[in-house]
Structures are given as structure tokens and as C-alpha cells.
Design a protein around this nucleic acid. Structure first.
Length: 514
RNA sequence: GGGCCUGUAGCUCAACUGGUAGAGCAGCGGACUCUUAAUCCGGUGGUUGAAGGUUCAAGUCCUUCCAGGCUCACCA
């Protein structure tokens, strides 16, 4: 019995919601009966899926003839109670199972304690499987224990939790209330596991490199800054592991990969979270053509393993992740989607004028290649729904990529822009991967860094900084190699049909609540 | 940062042109030993995101602020 009047008088616990006070009183009532509301001596032997797997094919007569007993634990997610008996549903990591609690089976004391349990409490049950009149597989409790008293209520059983903000802030409730959310994160974990298996099977070695860098390198992005007290030095949260993984190529590890967080101090959107997970891998003696083949194979295999099929629905499209993927050069894209003549490749002034005519803001100091990339991305990205390798990037936006050795457009004068052996993979209008044959000529690399430093001096705060130690490593000699980065969150979005990156990150960054 | 939209009970949602803030579920009391959105009876529950303003009267209109969503810009 709960004394609601006393709750309303409720002087001792100001500010505490009555629903919570009632539950605390139930916990106290249990303690008064010698029942610990938070014991830790119940060991489940089975889960809900075990029961369904073992007994799913058996009818009531078969179960009655050879009773099977199970010992399970889970959260009460439904409660249909009669005077001296009740059906509850409990949910564990594997799923749900119904439990029948009868006073004349568990005894008066246990049933009394059961009646002090609420939706959301975690309980342990041992009992035999049987089928109800309506043929639902159910455990008849012989033992029933409260394992954890919940002091706050779960969301409403029928509509559940749908408020987007609450779902992100209180992900633990979201996971309890929305099985599809749990399924998404199970698939994300499966994706990571299968990706590691794919790489491991091909002789790649997983490594860990620093997340705190004295220089933020390996990508064009604004970093987060932090500080080490003892060394009294500023550090940057890494924007990419690239330069460290390449040092490992120098050191003799020929196939390495890292799956970990990067941090970029940029905007937040349905495709951007300030911390996000990247796969980067480096493959000695390979080039970007080999990376294209590997990437096609990887995406096809991951789709089959994670989504169960190689054609997946996403934002109203059916995405076919079956090799070979389309290839599209930047030049073709600008021609096809921006409807601009190839002469924009020969004349930077013409390119800038075309960009301005399209309402693209050309940053002061923007290079010819950067302007063309702006035009390309604006015009082409929405069209790149099916997987497409975008190739033939300008060198001046690719400071770590190997220069393309045979480029007829330079020879015949239709372009003044050297290209690099690089691709980006677009799927559903999103950039999913970025890869290139790595630049391993230390003299060329130094020149590229110097160009970046000049851009930085001209106001581009995302330009690379010169990393002297990395150049020293290249001077020791880095084998020719291909390297690639794959955005795990976006791939998870694609394979789980999630519209927002926040739906595939367990705890996306939110402003604090007041 | 710009534009549009949202915020009402623990949860999901109502409340007309400004006129006494309501329902379902949850929770509480009672009945009930095969229910599954259990059912039946009875009651409880509110700083309408916050602060100002207009008005006889504000959930509703105005201003500012807070949080979130979509979108554009930036970015991967």
C-alpha cells in the first residue's frame, strides 16, 4: 500500500516528482520486509531468445510433456495484472519473453513483493516454458526476484518515446523504448566487426596512433585545442591520423589501419558530428586503382553482412552497392552537371567568373583547383546517388596525394592544372571515402606543405601546417602506397537507412540543458 | 551564422477569432488466477521552455532569451 496522501503532503522531499516518491516508498516497503531492492546474487542462465529458439516450434502439449526450465533476467516492459496472478513481459538484450506470475505458485510473500514492482524494474525469473490459451510462449515463474528497483517511469507503452531531443539526450531510455534504435546500434557494431574482419583477412594490422597532436595535420579542417598542464603545451585533438599511419609505413608496417575518432571544429548537421569515426588504412606497394577495387569489394561485402543485401534503401532511393561503381572525373562532372566548358580548366579567371555567376562565394586566395572543386561539388553532389568514384582531382586541393604521371590535358594545353591519383567515393550524395596514391617524395611533399603554409598565411585557416617530423620520416623512405579514409558514421547511416548521423551515434553532441 | 518550424501532466497529444488548461497511457485506491494497448469502478496529477509586455482577461498576440528539428552556408 502506498500512502499517496503523505506523498502529497511531501514536505521532506521537495522538488522530487510524486511518481518517483511513490517508487522510493515501494523500495522502502520492500526493505521493511527484508527484501533488498538492489541485490546482486541472481545469475541468469538464459535469455529471452534462448526460450524462443528452444521452444518456438513446440506446441503446448509438447512443452507440457517435457517441461524446460529457464532462468532469465530483464526489465518489466508490460504488466497485465489480475488479483492473484499477472502476466508481465520482460525484455533483455536478446528480446522479450512473457512471464506468468501466480500467487499460488510463487507463494504469498513473493507475490506480495511482486506487487510492489513497477514497469521498468529489472527482475529475475526462473520457471518452465508453456503456452497460454492464446498460444503465447510464456514462462511460469517458480522463482521471482526484484533485481533493480527503477525510480523513474518509462515512456508510455504504446507511443513510446518519440521526442527527438529526449531520445538523443537520454539515449538509455531510447534504447529501452525503441527496439529499432537498438537494432541500429547492433548493426553499427556488426559493421565495425566485419570491417575489421575484412581488413584482417587481407593482412592489415590494426594500430592506434595519437588522438592528441602537437600539429593538426592530415586533413583540411579546424581543430579543437586543448592543453597539457605538466608539459605546459597546447595540443590539438586530431583531425586525421594520416601522418602517423604513414610514419608506420616508413617503420616497416606495410598494411595498417586504424578505426577511431577524429575531431573537427566545424558545423553540425545531419551529416556532421564534431567527433566522428573514421577508418583509415594504408597499403604499401598499392595504388589508388587497387584501392578502388578493394573499396568496391569492401562496400559490397559490408552491405551483405550488415544490411543483409547489396541493394539498400536510403532516403527514397535503392542504392546498389555492387561492383563496379561508376567513375566520374571532376572534369566530366563539371561538364555534365555544371554545364561548363573545359576551358575553365585552362583559365583560372574564367573558372572564378563561372563560380561567381553561380552564386558561389570565392574565398580570397582560393586556388584554381579549389574553385573548380566548389563548382563540382555544388553541381554534382545531388546527382551522385548511386555509388560513384569521383576521380582526377586537382593537385592544389590534394597536398598529400601523388601527382598523376600521365595527364594528356596538361600536354595538349586544355588544362593548366596538374592532377593527382585520388578518388572520393560518393553514395547518396554523401562523401563516404577519400583515397589516393600517397605522395612519398619528400622534396615534393615539402613543396606542397609550403604551398599550404602560404594559403594559411593568406587566410585559409584550414590549410595544412608544415610537419617537419613527418618530412623527416619521408626522407627515411616511405614505400609507395595507397591510403584511404572511410567515414564509418555515414556508412552506418547508409546501411541502417538512418537519415541523420545522430541516429547512428549513441551520444551525439548536444548543448547542455539549462 | 541565415530562413522556416517546434516546445502544454512522467510519456503521446488536444485546447476555434484571446474567455475557467483537457484526454489516453503511466502512476494511486478498489474488483479480478490465461492476459497481451487486459478489462471494470473511483479519484490524483500543470511555473503551458524562461523572462518581460499588450489586455478586463494570454497556452493563444508582441519582444527578448533558452533548447531542439528541418534547411541554407561551412565541412567529411
Amino acid at each position: 500500500m502506498v500512502d499517496v496522501e503523505a506523498v502529497e503532503a511531501g514536505s521532506e522531499i521537495e522538488n522530487e516528482h510524486k511518481l518517483r516518491v511513490v517508487r522510493r516508498q515501494k523500495a522502502d516497503a520492500l526493505r521493511a520486509r527484508g527484501v533488498n531492492p538492489y541485490p546482486n546474487d541472481f545469475r541468469p542462465q538464459n535469455n529471452a531468445a534462448d526460450v524462443h529458439r528452444d521452444c518456438g516450434e513446440q506446441d503446448g502439449a509438447a512443452l507440457g510433456a517435457t517441461p524446460r526450465r529457464y532462468r532469465v533476467a530483464g526489465r518489466i516492459v508490460a504488466n497485465r495484472s489480475f488479483g492473484k496472478a499477472a502476466f508481465i513481459s520482460i525484455q533483455d538484450q536478446s528480446g522479450r519473453i512473457q512471464v506468468y506470475v501466480k500467487k499460488d505458485v510463487v507463494g504469498a510473500d513473493v507475490f506480495d513483493a511482486f506487487q510492489l514492482c513497477d514497469m521498468g524494474d529489472i527482475v529475475g525469473v526462473e520457471g518452465a516454458a508453456f503456452r497460454t490459451k492464446t498460444n503465447e510462449l510464456t514462462l511460469e515463474a517458480r522463482e521471482f526476484r526484484l533485481l533493480t528497483k527503477a525510480l523513474r517511469p518509462l515512456p508510455e507503452k504504446w507511443h513510446g518515446l518519440s521526442d527527438v531531443e529526449t531520445r538523443y539526450r537520454k539515449r538509455y531510455v531510447d534504447l529501452i523504448a525503441n527496439p529499432a534504435v537498438r537494432d541500429t546500434f547492433v548493426k553499427r557494431t556488426l559493421l565495425l566487426r566485419e570491417m575489421r574482419r575484412f581488413l584482417d583477412a587481407r593482412g592489415f594490422m590494426e594500430v592506434e596512433t595519437p588522438m592528441m597532436h602537437p600539429l593538426a595535420g592530415g586533413a583540411a579542417a579546424r581543430p579543437f585545442v586543448t592543453h597539457h598542464n605538466t608539459l605546459d603545451m597546447d595540443l590539438y585533438m586530431r583531425i586525421a591520423p594520416e601522418l602517423y599511419l604513414k610514419r608506420l609505413l616508413v617503420g616497416g608496417f606495410e598494411r595498417v589501419y586504424e578505426i577511431n575518432r577524429n575531431f573537427r571544429n566545424e558545423g553540425i548537421s545531419t551529416q556532421h558530428n564534431p567527433e566522428f569515426t573514421m577508418l583509415e588504412f594504408y597499403w604499401a606497394y598499392a595504388n589508388y586503382e587497387l584501392l578502388i577495387a578493394l573499396t568496391e569489394e569492401m562496400f559490397g561485402e559490408l552491405a551483405a553482412k550488415v544490411a543483409g543485401k547489396t541493394t539498400v534503401p536510403f532516403r527514397g532511393n535503392e542504392i546498389r552497392l555492387e561492383p563496379p561503381f561508376r567513375r566520374l572525373s571532376i572534369r566530366e562532372g563539371i561538364r555534365e552537371f555544371a554545364k561548363l566548358p573545359d576551358s575553365v580548366w585552362a583559365d583560372a579567371g574564367e573558372a572564378k567568373a563561372a563560380a561567381k555567376a553561380r552564386g558561389i562565394e570565392v574565398k580570397p586566395g582560393a586556388t584554381h583547383g579549389a574553385v573548380l572543386m566548389e563548382i563540382f561539388e555544388r553541381a554534382s553532389e545531388p546527382h551522385l546517388v548511386q555509388p560513384t568514384f569521383v576521380v582526377d582531382f586537382p593537385l592544389d586541393v590534394s597536398p598529400l596525394s601523388r601527382k598523376k604521371e600521365s595527364d594528356p590535358t596538361l600536354a595538349n594545353g586544355t588544362s593548366s592544372l596538374p592532377l593527382v591519383d585520388r578518388f572520393e567515393l560518393y553514395v547518396a550524395g554523401m562523401e563516404m571515402a577519400n583515397a589516393f596514391s600517397e605522395l612519398n617524395d619528400p622534396i615534393d611533399q615539402r613543396g606542397r606543405f609550403e604551398g599550404q603554409m602560404a594559403a594559411r598565411a593568406a587566410g585559409d585557416d584550414e590549410a595544412h601546417q608544415l610537419d617537419e617530423d613527418f618530412l623527416e620520416a619521408l626522407e627515411i623512405g616511405m614505400p609507395p602506397a595507397g591510403g584511404e579514409g572511410v567515414g564509418i558514421d555515414r556508412l552506418a547511416m547508409l546501411l541502417t537507412n538512418s537519415d541523420s548521423i545522430r541516429d547512428v551515434i549513441l551520444f551525439p553532441l548536444m548543448r547542455p540543458q539549462v
